[in-house]
Amino acid sequence: MLAKRIIPCLDCDLAVPEGRVVKGKEFKEIRHAGIPWVLAERYYLDGADEIVFLDITASSDRRGTMVDVIKKTAERVFVPLTVGGGINSMADARKVFNSGADKVSINTAALKDPALINEITESYGRQACVVAIDAKRRYGDLAGHETVPTPQGKCWFECSSHGGRQFTGIDALKWAAEAEERGAGDILLTSMDRDGTKEGYDIELTQAVSDRVRIPVIASGGVGSPQHILEVFQKTGAQAALAASIFHYGEYKIGDVKKYLKENGIHVRV
């Protein structure tokens, strides 16, 4: 039986030499957590099942830094490495794979050109393409959308692009199904409503997407404690849980979180 995965996510600003891991997508109080490959190695040794790097560099001045960061990480980290952010074409994806990444995560580029999913999976295999979906609840204009009942009433989920700065009108539940059909290996599902809140994952969203696809769903956005990770595994079909800040500042250690999950009946690699 496959184990549920715990995946630390490192949001990387590559505008400085060596890059730096910054806190989440909320830029209001930026705290620097460390050098990407140093943190990645620490998480690997602590039992991470996979590592995700997300390039959130605001400026375009990052050429070469990501390649260097991936190479240094691949020398030290012996679990799958996923790289996302700013991958807009097959050429961008190839560069990331050639540096030593095992998977790419694509979001905006896939929304613009869904065939990019097919192109990547045909060359590198299904496991190599993660489609990231940033979804936000919408309670009005339900017509034509797949709706989900929530305590606040029925809602649908809208995909956002460009790191949450733009909204697309695209139905996230329909898009997840299309991404699977085109060959995506995982859906990295972030709740825009919960991201940065530490209130827990969006259970309704995660359940709705895992009900509609047969590929693994990685729950993301809102985790503030190990209990939230347990909750998302108990209440939804998510195969993996992504977390960032709870690991970065030593609040929780991955090994301890996995032990806690195992004690509560979740099948994890410890």
Partner: peptide, 10 residues
């Protein structure tokens, strides 16, 4: 089962 098998197995 889901094919391909992708993940950690015992």
């Amino acid at each position: 089962v889901l094919v391909p098998q992708i993940g950690w197995n015992e």
